[in-house]
Amino acid sequence: MMWRRCLNGLLMGLALLAGTASAHEMSMAEMQLREMAPGEFLWQWMAGEKGGVADVLKPIWPEGCQVDLNVLHCGKSGMRGTLSIDGVGKTYSAALVKVFWLDGQTRVYTLTAGQPTVHLYGSAEDRRGMGEIATAYVALGVEHILGGIDHLLFVIGLLFLVGFNRRLLWTITAFTAAHSLTLAASALDFLALRPPPVEAAIALSIVLVAVEALHSKQTLAKRWPALVAFLFGLVHGLGFAGALKEIGLPESHMLVALLTFNVGVEIGQLMTVAAAWALWRAVSRWPSVSLARTAALYGIGTMAAFWAWSRVAAIFI
């Protein structure tokens, strides 16, 4: 029957995700440039998450700069002009360029597929425009939420818990408000927690929501879903902050970058809700939709339980 084939496909997909998904995988590559003398830089790719960075990413240096193996010669005028990374957005979703200037200052630039170039001014001064930074960080926020399988499963779990009704608006709003608070507090160094406990708590939050959604009785989570979303949203915000710290915040327009990254996260979250609503409209009239719902919740809970065990173990390793 059609519903059985769909159900089997769903379970197989969840099993594959459980085996291959990695939370908050941004596939970041990192390049470091260290100015050793005026206009002379040592540069190298650091170990990327997927390896083989030099094979897939090619730096295009500012005009007037010449490279000799791992030495970049830019002359007396310094490293001025446009720096590009060819290939960013394919194997690697973003590239971090860390420049250690001769005067001791450091700057971090984030290049993405949507913004694969950055303008350098020969010193630590960062003159990137507000619009340029906003565009880059919105794109990174969208990519992070869509690539963060655990965050998506928590949002989907909330949808199963609440359903598509008026309470969903308050529930999603509470989740957004909570993770925005802890994202900002952590990114601005007002709050600091070790990543392993945060990741374990995120996985456990998914387990709880899945279990609560399976209950037929009126549980606390079903009576007050916005409260549950807010409390767990505080933890998920710390997860978002961990990814943002890996990317880095520009010293100029730091608040703009923080705000637009959060906006990108919300855009990705709304895209998920919209896709789920469209799927629900398509299958809501199926006679066996309740069986598919139960199977999906068991799949989500099982996957999250596996993550929880592995992440709790990582705390003590």
Results as ranks from 00 to 15, higher is better:
Ala226His: 08
Gly147Val: 02
Ala184Gly: 12
Phe164Leu: 13
Leu181Ala: 13
Leu152Asp: 05
Ala210Thr: 01
Gly147Tyr: 04
Glu199His: 06
Ala201Gln: 08
Ile149Leu: 15
Gly157Ala: 12
Ser216Pro: 11
Gln218Cys: 13
Arg223Phe: 10
Leu169Ser: 12
Val235Gly: 01
Leu191Phe: 12
Val142Pro: 02
Val198Phe: 04
Val162Asn: 01
Glu199Lys: 08
Arg167His: 15
Asp150Trp: 04
Thr176Arg: 09
Thr176Gly: 08
Pro195Arg: 10
Pro196Lys: 09
Ile145Gly: 00
Ala221Asn: 08
Leu169Thr: 13
Leu214Glu: 05
Glu143Ala: 12
Leu227Gly: 10
Val198Lys: 02
His215Thr: 12
Ala174Ser: 07
Leu188Val: 11
Val138Phe: 04
Phe230Pro: 01
Val138Arg: 04
Leu193Lys: 08
His236Ala: 05
Val235Asn: 03
Leu220Val: 11
Ala187Pro: 05
Gly157Val: 03
Pro195Thr: 09
His215Gln: 15
Glu199Ser: 09
Ile202Thr: 02
Phe175His: 01
Glu199Leu: 08
Arg167Gly: 13
Gly141Gln: 07
Leu161Pro: 00
Val235Arg: 01
Leu158Arg: 06
Ala210Lys: 01
Ala226Glu: 09
Leu152Lys: 12
Leu227Phe: 14
Leu234His: 03
Val207Ile: 15
Pro197Gln: 10
Ala229Lys: 02
Gln218Met: 15
Ala213Leu: 10
His236Arg: 09
Leu146Asp: 06
Ile202Ser: 00
Ile202Phe: 03
Pro225Gly: 03
Leu231Tyr: 05
Leu140Asp: 02
Ala178Phe: 02
Ile149Glu: 07
Val142Cys: 12
Val142Lys: 03
Ala229His: 02
Pro196Asp: 06
Leu220Lys: 10
Trp170Glu: 08
Leu220Asp: 06
Leu193Ser: 06
Gly163Tyr: 10
Asn165Lys: 14
Ala184Ile: 15
Ala221Ile: 03
Ala187Tyr: 03
Arg194Ser: 14
Leu140Arg: 11
Ala221Lys: 02
Val138His: 05
Leu153Thr: 01
Ile145Met: 11
Asp189Phe: 14
